[in-house]
């Protein structure tokens, strides 16, 4: 390994770590998840209520339990790790589950987020 290699590697790692840290620090307790398909909001669920929801006409099933949301089922054929059902539980603001094949994103918003108007 040359010295230049090391500088490049350290630089990329530093950018990654700093932006990761900044994102983690900015996270707050979430209140709602917003479901978007191709950028359009299609549904919004409170994290305070447990429930199981069919999204996007049945392509994905989202479960909310104990203030955390996670995907329990999806119809996409993606291999292994990129599957939305493997993306874990989300509960803090800006955390999201992405199902790129169905163009679907579930994002957590906080109670005081200005663009979240409480519906119903």
């Amino acid at each position: 390994m040359k010295k230049r290699d090391l500088i490049l590697i350290v630089a990329i790692l530093a950018i990654g770590l700093l932006s990761w840290g900044a994102l983690e620090l900015a996270k707050e307790e979430g209140a709602y998840v917003v479901v978007t398909v191709a950028g359009e909001e299609v549904a919004r669920y409170s994290l305070a209520e447990d429930g199981e929801y069919e999204l996007n006409g049945g392509t994905n099933i989202l479960k909310i339990e104990n203030g955390e949301a996670y995907m329990v089922w999806a119809n996409c054929p993606t291999l292994g790790k990129t599957r939305c059902t493997h993306q874990g539980k989300i509960s803090r603001t800006t955390e999201k589950i992405t199902c790129r094949i169905n163009k679907l994103v579930v994002t957590v918003y906080g109670a005081e987020d200005p663009d979240v108007e409480l519906i119903g």
Partner: peptide
């Protein structure tokens, strides 16, 4: 594809 710029928050990791 998702028309969501927020997906880029995965990038640092």
């Amino acid at each position: 594809v998702t028309q969501t710029i927020g997906v880029a928050t995965y990038l640092p990791v």
